[in-house]
């Protein structure tokens, strides 16, 4: 309980410890804390900027998507139109081809008919002549009645 030399010793040590704190403890700690504060502030600002950019990017993406959809729809419509046109053309072509083949067949048939008719005509004439020859052999001279027989054959 006595006031003595301890007082002076304590005063000196107090001064030394305050000096020590002031020199080696306080400045680095405060510096680190301030630096971290600045870092955090920067980080927060960057995060906010990033968020803003993300919103913008999303908007842009939506826009692109919309555009792409529109384009796709357009392309689809065009393709459909083209396909219909192709089908139409093919149909026409087929019809034309069919008509042409039909015409050709008909012509061939007619030709064959004509040919057959010609042949028949020739045969009929021969047959008539042969028949007439048989008849006339008995009755008449073939040479003499030839013009009559031919006139008959021509009437077939």
């Amino acid at each position: 309980m006595n006031i003595n030399l301890t007082l002076i010793a304590q005063l000196l040590s107090f001064a030394v410890f305050v000096w020590f704190t002031m020199k080696f403890v306080w400045p680095p700690l405060v510096k680190a804390m301030d630096e971290r504060k600045a870092k955090i502030a920067d980080g927060l600002a960057a995060a906010e900027r990033g968020q803003h950019e993300q919103v913008l990017a999303q908007e842009r993406a939506t826009e692109y998507l919309h555009e792409a959809k529109q384009q796709a729809a357009e392309i689809k419509a065009r393709a459909e139109r083209q396909a219909a046109q192709l089908v139409e053309e093919a149909k026409e072509k087929a019809q034309a081809e069919g008509a042409r083949q039909l015409a050709a067949a008909q012509a061939e048939i007619e030709q064959a008919t004509n040919k057959a008719r010609e042949e028949l005509r020739a045969r009929v004439a021969e047959l008539a002549v042969a028949g007439a020859e048989k008849i006339l052999r008995r009755e008449i001279d073939a040479e003499a009645h030839k013009d009559i027989v031919e006139a008959v054959a021509r009437q077939i």
């Binding site: 410890f17 020590f20 080696f24 700690l29 600045a38």
Partner: peptide
């Protein structure tokens, strides 16, 4: 106290 805080101050980083 001094040692404790000095150690922390030495290692202090942001």
């Amino acid at each position: 106290f001094s040692y404790f805080f000095y150690k922390a101050a030495q290692k202090a980083s942001s």
